[in-house]
Design a protein around this nucleic acid. Structure first.
Length: 653
RNA sequence: GCCGACAUAGCUCAGAUGGUAGAGCAACUGAUUCGUAAUCAGUAGGUCCCCAGUUCAAUUCUGGGUGUCGGCUCCA
């Protein structure tokens, strides 16, 4: 064996290195001292590794500095270790568990009877800063599982010992320890060179978290934090959080008169006049769109006998989430669960199956596409509720499409076209996620053969679309695999909204059929799909995406007339009436405020147009529109403005 | 549901070792008649989340409840 190895750098150049030399030494000697100082971690043949690792074989090497996002994730994991080390010093008896880097930061879960207080957090944060200032190197060591087990048993770290058991169960023979100072943890790594390289750490919050995320397990104390290589980046992150806070639909919604919540109906919104307008505009646009695409709107009952849910499978796997209703005519001596014989619908699907089954269907009718906007109820955990995004009552733009198997790819493509139309109209990017059968057989209906078929069909439809998608194994609905659309808003946040789900099980359960061209009965396949997802969630996303300043076609109030003084009220009123007569949503500011104050009020109400009316406008029988944001369009005749508004207020689909 | 924090005027927030509370904005009234992000003055507005308990006295302390917020595996 040669005593040198060949190292290929990202630019394609090759260098020879002594076998076994540490990456950092190689970089310093063969590339440059500057890069060696800036280096944080390395990527060796695609795998992130410590700079202290030796070069043992020919490999591709990439040096990552503080500029790379991967390095930041490593630094955050470093920060989690530092956090754990100071917590164990400050709070003896606290056990460590896991502490990964996550999007925007990291967390660490501690086993400790006493929760951390905000004061504790401050104290811990100071100690973390000291540990960073001490600039302790991270030292990697590989040990046998037995050694590791002995070490952590001696330290009394029962969770770590449990994890070692899992690792052993996966067939590993060794694991790696990382030390800084006198503190040790085992960890896949990699880590940065030393604590001093982490930069600045800020602890964000404390929270309870179940061990392994399972409510049957012990409650751990989770500390969330974030870390950045420099203070400016941290401040930019905090500024972004502040921007998110300002755009939060839970603040903007009530402030703009869109919706509100009341404690007597947790998880169910009250739609205020402005919000109802917005809701209806979205619903109307969707109705037009789907009608043009061959859908038929139907309305179905809200309350059903449990037999329906038993047939659909909901009673078995979804009952926890359903609102059950007591049958008052049932025998009071019976146990309560036997008297709860009705349920509010949590989904529209079974009712659409019933409609399908109400007539004999021919292959010539397919695809049959039912569309429903009905109120649905799902009993979410009280602690999981929040704003419009986690609610108990909502409505979907819900459809179930009955197709022949051969029609699946076309239909998926057609649905994707709807998604493009709608999301394009809002300037929302989306990506696709393919979710397959739930891992636990108890969480799904239908046998494996059906799942194989459904997953295969959806996958080939995906391939035909040619859009990039990622796999989300085990996250399918209980009745079928699905394609989720993940939307990215103006702040770069991702939201799961629309969905396409394939269902071979339901037609079996409901004995749905159609007469084929062979004059024999066949099973249709059901496609579940929603474009907005739920109106509630979609309006939350749009509110934050637009920061409450909706485009003219959606704005609850499209224009507000602001007069320079009340001498011009007559023409102001005439303008309001003319525009209203044409169907526009217009109001007047009749206060005795000065123009500047009225403009400010219109701006804060996020109304697309303030129509300034003074002497000039009365003479010209026109208005001077000022767009939200400040653009002054100068005086124009009322007809010219009507034309402008007509263009902008036209629904884009 | 579980862990933690929080709950004072429509909104944003002050406040008192336990002696029933204030500001700014908004609202209302009046004056002002004004040209693109705040005219001036006055008035009114409170079950200090709810229910118990302790106390001469509870918005404040204790207990229980409700709601909201941050979380509850992007698995060493």
């Amino acid at each position: 064996m040669s005593d040198t190895v060949t190292v290929t750098l990202p630019d394609g150049s090759e260098k020879r290195a002594a076998r076994g030399v540490a990456i950092l030494d190689f970089v310093r000697e063969q590339i440059g001292a500057g890069l060696a100082r800036a280096a944080f971690v390395a990527r060796l043949d695609g795998e992130l590794v410590d700079l202290s690792r030796p070069l043992e074989r020919d490999a591709r090497l990439e040096v990552l500095t503080a500029k790379s996002p991967e390095a930041l994730a490593v630094a955050r994991h470093d920060a989690a270790h530092v956090l754990a080390s100071v917590v164990q010093r400050l709070y003896p008896g606290t056990q460590v568990t896991i502490g990964p880097a996550i999007e925007d930061g990291f967390y660490y879960d501690f086993a400790r009877a006493q929760p951390f207080t905000p004061d504790d957090l401050e104290r811990i944060e100071r100690a973390v800063a000291e540990a960073i200032a001490a600039d302790l190197p991270f030292v990697r060591e590989e040990v046998s599982l037995e050694e590791a087990r002995a070490l952590f048993e001696r330290l009394g770290e029962t969770y770590k010992v449990e994890i070692i058991g899992d690792i052993a169960g996966r067939g590993a023979r060794t694991l790696t320890l990382y030390r800084h100072g006198d503190w040790v943890d085992f960890c896949l790594g990699p880590h940065g060179p030393s604590t001093g390289r982490i930069g600045v750490v800020k602890l964000m919050s404390v929270a309870g978290a179940y061990w392994r995320g399972d409510a049957r397990n012990a409650m751990l104390q989770r500390v969330y934090g974030t870390a950045f290589f420099d203070r400016k980046a941290l401040e930019a992150h905090l500024a972004r959080l502040e921007e998110l806070r300002k755009r939060d639909h839970r603040k903007l919604g009530p402030a703009l008169g869109l919706f509100a919540f009341h404690e007597v109906a947790p998880g169910s919104a009250f739609w205020l006049p402005h919000g109802t307008t917005l809701y209806n505009l979205l619903a109307d646009a969707m109705r037009r769109l789907v009608t043009r695409n061959g859908y038929q709107e139907v309305k179905t009952p809200l309350l059903y006998d449990r037999r329906l849910w038993e047939q659909s499978g909901h009673w078995g796997v979804y009952r926890e989430n359903m609102f059950l209703v007591l049958d008052k005519e049932s025998d009071p001596a019976l146990p309560v669960d036997q008297r709860l014989t009705m349920s509010l619908k949590p989904m529209n699907c079974p009712s659409h199956y019933l409609i399908y089954g109400m007539a004999r269907r021919s292959y010539r009718e397919l695809p049959i596409r039912y569309f429903t906007v009905d109120v649905l109820h799902r009993n979410e955990l009280s602690g999981a509720l929040g704003g419009l995004t986690r609610v108990r009552q909502f409505a979907q733009d819900d459809s179930h499409i009955f197709v022949m198997e051969s029609q699946i790819p076309d239909e998926v493509e057609r649905i994707t076209g709807l998604m493009r139309t709608v999301y394009g109209a809002f300037g929302l990017e989306f990506s696709l996620r393919f979710s397959t059968r739930p891992t636990n057989p108890a969480d799904r209906v239908g046998d494996d053969a059906l799942w194989d078929k459904a997953e295969g069909a959806l996958r080939s439809a995906l391939d035909r679309l040619g859009l990039p998608w990622e796999l989300n194994a085990g996250d399918g609905a209980f009745y079928g695999p699905k394609i989720d659309f993940v939307v990215t808003d103006s702040l770069g946040r991702k939201w799961q909204t629309c969905t396409i789900q394939l269902d071979y099980a339901a037609p079996e359960r409901f004995d749905l059929s159609y007469a084929g061209d062979d004059n024999r009965e066949h099973r249709p396949v059901v496609i579940h799909r929603a474009v907005y997802g739920s109106f509630e969630r979609f309006i939350a996303i749009l509110t934050e995406h637009y920061a409450g300043a909706f485009p003219a076609w959606l704005a609850p109030v499209q224009a507000r007339v602001v007069t320079v003084s009340d001498r011009f009220e007559a023409w102001g009123q005439a303008v309001v009436e003319r525009l209203r007569a044409l169907g526009y949503r217009v109001e007047a500011d009749a206060s005795s405020d000065k123009l500047g104050a009225k403009i400010r009020a219109a701006q804060l109400a996020k109304i697309p147009y303030a129509l300034v009316i003074g002497e000039k406008e009365v003479e010209a029988q026109g208005v001077s529109p000022r767009r939200h944001g400040g653009e002054d369009l100068k005086t124009m005749g009322l007809d010219a403005f009507v034309e402008l508004l007509a263009r902008e207020a036209r629904p884009p689909y």
